[in-house]
Design a protein around this nucleic acid. Sequence first.
DNA 1: GACACTCGCAACCAGGAGGTTGCTGATATG
DNA 2: CATATCAGCAACCTCCTGGTTGCGAGTGTC
Lengths: 112, 112
Amino acid sequence: MQTLDALGAGAGPAPIFAALGDRTRLSLLARLSDGEPRSIAALSADTDLTRQAVTKHLHVLEDVGLVSSIRVGRESRFAYRPEPLAAARSYLDEVSARWDEALARLKSFVEG
Amino acid sequence: MQTLDALGAGAGPAPIFAALGDRTRLSLLARLSDGEPRSIAALSADTDLTRQAVTKHLHVLEDVGLVSSIRVGRESRFAYRPEPLAAARSYLDEVSARWDEALARLKSFVEG
DNA sequence: GACACTCGCAACCAGGAGGTTGCTGATATG
DNA sequence: CATATCAGCAACCTCCTGGTTGCGAGTGTC
């Protein structure tokens, strides 16, 4: 099953998981997943972090395509992007399926 | 939807994603997902990394429960563990569902 | 018992991640 | 125009990460 290595966005799913591997970024994504684009100031509002720290996290998310940004007037709005997360999901599904097949083989071996 | 913050293994899904955010570890997990426990030496065999490097990666995976290890004679066998990956999948499913609902609301607003 | 294999521990290193502060520039608003 | 807001850039810092090497200890084999 080479697809485990083949599929993936760009350099594979690892960078996507890496981007997801941070509480702050997960929180940002969760807030943006309601479809409402938000400015950096808005996203930094109820956080104990600096605006700059939030900005860096948003750039990390943007680098792997999890969010997109457009400049509107003096503020830049960040919006959720579903594609990379779908890729991540399908990768986890593949690994999971591989495991389920292994279980099925084991079961049929024991029974048969 | 507080479940986005509530669920999670231990300190939330972020550490799991962080553990998945590395090509080497993803590769190790993919190989172990066939159900066959393997020794460190076996897992280090067709890698250009040192055995110690592989060991560290395996420990990272073990820390978040993605693999488990048992000592058998002089070698320690690492085996795949499905639970954390299931948690990661369900988290991604939640975010994805949130997004889908947002799309549905937008659609019904435009149409209605 | 001598030897080969498997592993753990510790030290060490370079580089990147997460975060802060300070400053500057652009855009609204009075 | 004066002022406040939003953001980008750069420097700097600390700590973790990924990786290496060296060495010692347990385990199997002849």
